[in-house]
Nucleic acid binder design. Structure first.
Length: 415
RNA sequence: GUGACUGUAGCUCAGUUGGCAGAGCACCUGGUUGUGGCCCAGGUGGCCGUGGGUUCAAGUCCCAUCAGUCACCCCA
């Protein structure tokens, strides 16, 4: 029989990797709930239209990367490539806006993009996602950024760089894009790399994000978005920066920071690590006023971010596996049942450990006990079975004593 | 979608000009009555990614293919 293998870009997780993921989830729940965020669980599969309308028809994500297929009644559905669109749909559909004020939601789970896998990039990857809906206030942008920093530092991740930019709005961005295109017109093959020559027509903003040294050099004097903001955007951005700085978070103002999803306006930010290879962005987000309206909801503004869990996991230290409390050794066949029921009693008392299903030599079982790292080894031999006791051995110092079966739990708990 | 590199034991990897498939770790069993770690002895474990080709002979050379990794691209 040939064996079935997993699909390219999909992963199986076991400890210690899987432990990092559950830790991220529990820290997220703890931190985000302090800011008033509510746990949200939404579908993985959505109508394709949701993503093409929100992310942008012309983006790479929509054009080349989505897992899209017809369902059994030929309706086009898509495995979500990101979380925001689905959360917006849920917000609108469940009329969460009716409560008034700011609605704060967080979610986490798998996302799917059909890309060539590499370090920090899977076809099924996982994000933790936060969205704050219903307020255009720049202080909310600042709070979201500060909360992200709080979450990351709670995970023990320092050494991260925060980059912030403003992309302007529907009014001022087109003016800026015109100025940028104008500037790039003067750039030719001898200045820009092949990709950028293409990008200067298709997506001029991306030229600013190019890592090729030559491109960086020749675009150093390119017009900056931050010099072209309208009064509203300028004021909004100043308040965000001032509030973030005022709360003690240092960041880099990066006028070249670009987002790949079309819905972002005004504040955008990204958290970058230098320690995880080429896919260095561990979190990214920004403001998306107008998105909810464009999905048929009320004209409510929003701001949020997503963290890449695989990328964060690469930065997290491995935690020591927890040691069990006991390991039972049984020397006589008839004692196996006693071993099983003793283990059961101890587990119900809150202890952890295992009992054997078959007898083997004491040496072998002791080696097994040692390997599990159990604090205590409980020996049930001929003598113990007769006297209804267990020989309790402290594996750290080797001390051992006979304890009546009924008192083993309290004995272990007392240690 | 493009490129480069890598596929040998559960893991990390050796394997010379083509000439018997190897090591370390892990695992199992022992080292005399019922005692772990350290040490010692022995043992299990291989479609050498897969399929062709060259050759008396292929892990080794050639072609194809699949898989993995990293990078481009894109993004979290």
């Amino acid at each position: 029989m040939t064996k079935v293998s997993k699909i390219k870009g999909f992963a199986d997780l076991f400890p210690p990797e899987s432990v990092k993921f559950s830790r991220m989830e529990s820290v997220a729940k703890d931190i985000f709930s302090r800011y008033g965020y509510q746990e949200t669980r939404i579908p993985i599969l959505e109508k394709t239209e949701l993503f093409s309308r929100s992310i942008g028809e012309e983006t790479d994500v929509v054009q080349k990367e989505m897992y899209t297929f017809p369902d059994r009644k030929d309706r086009l559905v898509t495995m979500r490539p990101e979380a925001t669109a689905g959360v917006m749909r849920a917000y609108i559909e469940n009329k969460l806006f009716a409560a008034g004020g700011v609605t704060r939601l967080y979610a986490n789970g798998p996302m799917f993009r059909y890309e060539r896998p590499q370090k920090g990039r899977m076809r099924q990857f996982h994000q933790i996602d936060c969205e704050a809906l219903g307020s255009p206030d720049p202080l909310l942008d600042a709070e979201v950024i500060l909360m992200l920093e709080h979450f990351l530092s709670e995970l023990g991740l320092t050494k991260l760089t925060f980059e912030i930019n403003s992309l302007g709005c529907r009014e001022c961005r087109p003016v800026y894009l015109a100025a940028l295109s104008d500037f790039l017109k003067g750039m030719h093959k001898e200045h820009l790399c092949e990709d950028c020559m293409r990008r200067k027509l298709s997506n001029p903003l991306r030229v600013l994000d190019c890592k090729v040294p030559g491109c960086k050099e020749y675009t150093a004097d390119a017009p900056k978005i931050t010099d072209h903001l309208c009064d509203g955007c300028r004021e909004h951005f100043d308040v965000v920066m001032e509030a973030v700085t005022g709360s003690g978070l240092s960041y880099t103002l990066n006028p070249r920071l670009v987002r790949g999803l079309d819905y972002y306006v005004r504040t955008t930010f990204e958290v970058v690590s230098g320690d995880i290879g080429s896919q260095s962005s561990v979190a990214g987000g920004g403001r998306y006023d107008g998105l909810i309206g464009s999905l048929g909801g009320p004209d409510q503004p929003g701001v949020g971010f997503a963290c890449g869990m695989e990328r964060l996991a690469m930065l997290m230290p491995e935690t020591e596996p927890v040691k069990p409390d006991f390991h039972i050794v049984v020397l006589e066949q008839p004692g196996l049942a006693s071993g099983l029921s003793l283990a059961q009693e101890l587990r119900k008392a809150g202890l952890s450990g295992e009992a054997p299903y078959a007898v083997s030599s004491m040496k072998s079982q002791m080696r097994q006990a040692n390997k599990t790292g159990a604090r205590f080894c409980l020996v049930l031999g001929e003598e113990e079975l007769r006297t209804e006791t267990a020989l309790v051995k402290n594996m750290a110092d080797g001390a051992q004593e006979s304890i009546p079966l009924g008192r083993v739990a309290t004995h272990l708990l007392g240690e």
